[in-house]
Design a protein around this nucleic acid. Structure first.
Length: 422
RNA sequence: GUGAUUGUAGCUCAGUUGGUUAGAGCGCCUGGUUGUGGCCCAGGAGGCCGCGGGUUCGAAUCCCGUCAUUCACCCCA
């Protein structure tokens, strides 16, 4: 509401109620991906600008109008990463990868795109992504997709749709572009402004134009499946077959081409209903990326998921996730001497693994009890001057209000029945 | 970038055809006899009515600008 404290448009602050959900998603990523023997990579959030220009493609929308690019003090052009793949591939190229060797990694972190924010789209957003780099086979593509669905299932997201398509091997691309160009040439004057631009810059993207007029023209366009070469078709069929064999539901979407230049062969997307217009919660495909100064492109397959969108989709499904921070024990102290002694008690309980909160303001009993109730403590321990004198402590069960006196040095045993943990 | 939407208390929102000290619910704090939570009751704190200009005797209310929110387009995760 106020002005100066708001974060920059398109960025957000995340408080514990939310970050607990993020930690859940990240924890699942660590455990699921490790079962596929995939380790985490962490690369810088900014790179030399040409890292993105070359790989994503300098005619793509991302590069043309969405990148946060700036000059550093050495007058180098740097860019906040708009996606994860380019930086990961740069890192792998830099480290070196023997021919025929493979490197599998996943990454988690913020990405930056200067778009107008709306539901499911921020300027700083967060992705969890996976890359299988160095090898090519339909089986690898298939495992990558299986992994993606495995992860989504592990976080309880099953109400989704998998769309796949192929863009053909890189050798096909020029021929496909040519055929498409021939097809659209007589129609191009009647199509929308964006498509006229795409015709020259990135003809593939005409395919998923939402404009009604353009859609009808596209409907009769030669289908990708018919345009690709025999090799590409066999490759794509193999991917589909494995998915079918594994019992994975998918839908071939001939319109799916995706907006980054580096994709070849298999491309896929997972969409969810009920989260607004930005319905893609994950997307990816096979790619070839030539890094600056390298002779040969690196090949790989991978995907990225939008963390904010995963959360949107999850919460739309009303599946419960994360219960917030809980308190096991609240310590009520009466009087400064007791308060001081209770510091010891608190740290000893915390060392035993209890989640402990205590009053630090020397307030009245009523106020402390109110707080104990508010934070939903299971047990309240009460110790004031008289308990100090008697060497005891009061243990109150907040559920049924029952209260017992416990010898102070037997407190651990007394707590045991209330916390059935191994 | 284009279009629309909204901006009043910590939160969710009322605020009548412009008219006196700007309201409610929730939340917060303090009480309701000695050191015991939730329910109830009483009291209290807390607002440059997004910001800046204009019209008017008078503006939260009307006009202009600006910033921000939310949503859609474009595109993508």
């Amino acid at each position: 509401m106020s002005k100066k404290t708001e974060p920059i448009p398109g960025t957000s602050d995340f408080f514990p109620e939310e970050t607990i959900q993020w930690q859940y998603l990240e924890g699942k990523a660590h455990s699921v991906f490790s079962r596929y023997s995939i380790g985490e990579i962490r690369t810088p959030v900014f790179e030399r600008t040409d890292v993105f220009l070359r790989s994503i493609g300098d005619q793509t929308d991302i590069v043309q109008k969405e990148m946060y690019t700036f000059k550093d003090r050495g007058d180098r052009s740097l860019t906040l990463r708009p996606e994860g793949t380019a930086g990961v591939l740069r890192a792998i190229a830099n480290k070196g990868l023997s021919q025929g060797d493979e490197q599998r990694v996943y990454y988690i972190g913020p990405m930056f795109r200067g778009e107008r924010p709306s539901a499911g789209r921020k300027r700083q957003f967060h992705q969890i992504g996976v890359e299988y780099v160095g090898k090519v086979s339909p089986e690898i593509d298939a495992e990558c997709i299986i992994l993606l669905l495995d992860y989504l299932e592990s976080i309880g997201l099953t109400d989704t749709k998998l769309l796949i398509n192929t863009r053909g091997i890189s050798g096909d691309r020029e021929r496909i572009s040519g055929t498409m160009s021939d097809y659209y040439k007589p129609h191009i004057d009647t199509m929308c402004e964006d498509c006229r631009r795409r015709y020259d810059t990135n003809i593939w993207r005409i395919l998923d134009c939402k404009n009604e007029g353009c859609k009808t023209i596209t409907q009769n366009a030669p289908s990708m499946i018919d345009l690709i070469s025999e090799t590409s078709r066999i490759y794509f069929d193999s991917v589909c077959e494995i998915l079918k064999y594994t019992g994975i539901q998918y839908q071939i979407d001939p319109q799916l081409v995706r907006g980054l230049d580096y994709y070849v062969h298999t491309v896929f997307e997972v969409v969810s209903n009920n989260i607004g217009a930005q319905d893609a919660i994950a997307g990816g495909g096979r790619y070839e990326i030539l890094n600056p100064g390298q002779k040969h492109p690196l090949i790989g397959v991978g995907f990225a998921m939008g963390v904010e969108r995963l959360l949107l989709a999850k919460n739309a499904n009303k599946s419960d996730l994360g219960k917030g921070i809980c308190v096991d024990i609240y310590i009520v102290s009466l009087g400064r001497p007791a308060l001081q002694k209770n510091f010891d008690l608190a740290s000893s309980l915390r060392k035993q693994g209890f989640r402990v909160l205590m009053d630090l303001e020397n307030r009245g009993m009523k106020a402390q009890m109110r707080t104990a109730n508010k934070v939903n403590a299971k047990i309240t321990l009460i110790r004031g001057q008289s308990e100090l004198d008697d060497g005891i402590i009061l243990l109150k069960n907040m559920n049924d209000s029952s209260q017992i006196k416990v010898q102070f040095d037997e407190i651990t045993a007394a707590l045991k029945p209330f916390f059935n943990r191994s």
